[in-house]
C-alpha cells in the first residue's frame, strides 16, 4: 500500500467512509440522548419548604428532584463542634462556614457520596450521619470523616425566601 501513490479512487473511498461515519453518528446520537433527563424531569427544578416548625436539633427530609434533602436546625453545641475541626483532619476539606452560611441551618443532599444511599440521622462516630450501606461516617456539618465515601454530602443551591421558607434549587 505504501509504495502505491494514492489515486482518485482511494480518495473516493476515504471520503465515502468519512461521510458514512458522520451519518451513522448523527443517527446514533438521538438514540443515545433520549436516555438523558427529559424536559418534564428538568422542569421540576425547585422546591419550597416551610421550616417554621423545626426545633433546634431536629432534621426534616424533603424530596427535591427525586433526591432526599436534609434540612437540619443545628444546636449551638453541634455548630461549635463542626467549626472547631481542623482542616487537616478532613478527607474532603471544607469549612463549616462555607457549608452553612447561616450556622443554625444545614441544608444538604441526603445522599451518601459513595453509592447513593440515604445516611441515618444522629448516628455514627461523629454524631452526624452514618450510611448503613457501606459504613461512611459524616460529622455535624455533613462532612465525610471515615469510610469509603470520597466527598462531603453536597450542599445544593438554596436560599431563604423569608424567615420560615427555604427554596431549594
Amino acid at each position: 500500500m505504501s509504495d502505491k501513490k494514492p489515486e482518485r479512487r482511494d480518495f473516493l473511498f476515504t471520503a465515502t467512509y468519512a461521510v458514512g461515519a458522520v451519518g451513522a453518528a448523527a443517527v446514533v446520537w438521538p438514540l443515545v440522548d433520549q436516555m438523558n433527563p427529559d424536559a418534564s424531569v428538568k422542569a421540576l427544578a425547585s422546591t419550597e419548604v416551610d421550616v417554621s416548625s423545626l426545633k433546634p436539633g431536629n432534621t426534616i427530609t424533603v424530596l427535591w428532584r427525586g433526591k432526599p434533602v436534609f434540612i437540619r436546625r443545628r444546636t449551638q453545641e453541634e455548630i461549635d463542634v463542626a467549626r472547631s475541626v481542623k482542616m487537616e483532619d478532613l478527607i474532603h476539606p471544607e469549612k463549616d462556614e462555607d457549608r452553612a452560611k447561616n450556622p443554625e441551618w444545614l441544608v444538604m443532599l441526603g445522599v451518601c457520596t459513595h453509592l447513593g444511599c440515604v445516611p441515618l440521622n444522629d448516628k455514627g462516630d461523629y454524631d452526624g450521619w452514618f450510611c448503613p450501606c457501606h459504613g461512611s461516617h459524616y460529622d455535624t456539618s455533613g462532612r465525610i470523616r471515615k469510610g469509603p465515601a470520597p466527598w462531603n454530602m453536597e450542599v445544593p443551591k438554596y436560599e431563604f425566601v423569608n424567615a420560615n421558607t427555604i427554596k431549594i434549587g
Binding site: 443515545v32 436516555m35 438523558n36 433527563p37 427529559d38 424531569v41 428532584r65 427525586g66 433526591k67
Partner: peptide
C-alpha cells in the same frame, strides 16, 4: 449516572428502561 437514570435519581425513566 444521570444518563443511566434519565433523571437526577432512580425513578420512572430508570424503571421503564
Amino acid at each position: 449516572v444521570t444518563w443511566l437514570w434519565g433523571g437526577y435519581s432512580v425513578d420512572n425513566p430508570t424503571l421503564t428502561r
